[in-house]
Amino acid sequence: MDKDERSAYSYLRTTKKFPNIWCSGCGIGIVMGALIRAIDRMGLDKNKIALVSGIGCSGRMPVYMDFNTMHTTHGRALAFATGLKLAKPELKVVVIMGDGDALAIGGNHFIHAARRNIDLTAIVINNQIYGMTGGQYSPTTPLEMRATTAPYGHVEPPFPICELAIAAGATYVARSTVYHAVELDKFIEHAIQKVGFSLVEAVSYCHTTFGRLNKIGSAVEMMHQLKEMSISLSAAEKLTPEERSLKIIRGVLHNIDKPDYSSLYDKVIERAKASVTGKEYMRAGPGGLE
């Protein structure tokens, strides 16, 4: 491919009506850029990539990109992706979700997709709030923060997304922020290459709701805050647990090798085919068994 063909533009849908639906200054576009750069770097065939998303601001990402794209229902993207991956194992299936999407309504699907170790790449864009519906608190909204449904401050502790995925059985788990776009490119690339359930948490922000309600400021101020609050994994190891709890820890938190669901199920198919007896063949009818 020449350079022009490999530009980000060639991955966008030229027939789609632009501009996109996101507020100007939103971090989702940075994640989209990181995904495109990661795919470009790997030189993958567009026909062999499927993007599956749920509902919310992040759910709108696939439609802008020229792959096999599917915008599903709220929280269920991983369940759709599971079926798609099992039907078409040669596809690289990337699932794009938001924090409310993946961890509230989709929490059950999230842990089970990780437990089964389906060969999927999950990207959770964590802006700590429900942006599209106007700023209600999500499962990752920090304690004491304001949301339109927490006008007196939030009383629930947030879900640690990466730790949840590790405990549930994911093979690759990494976290970065939309400030650290280059690092995000790299983690998404690793995650797509990894066989098994991989997760990249892309910490973002919502200046339109969260920033306004909590008087943090504009997108620029929130971007600065991401930079100040985040710390690399190696630097975090020098901190006390209390100090660490206040930071966004960036890095590859988990990376192990184990057989994915499809490779194990292929053995089931082998065993089942070996067990076919003459009698069962008759029951299936002539030509019934492939």
Partner: peptide
């Protein structure tokens, strides 16, 4: 699957895969 919602979702995903 983990529930019936996911079951039909997986079926639809597989069907999209042909």
């Amino acid at each position: 699957m983990e529930d019936e919602i996911a079951s039909l979702a997986a079926c639809i995903g597989a069907s999209v895969g042909g």
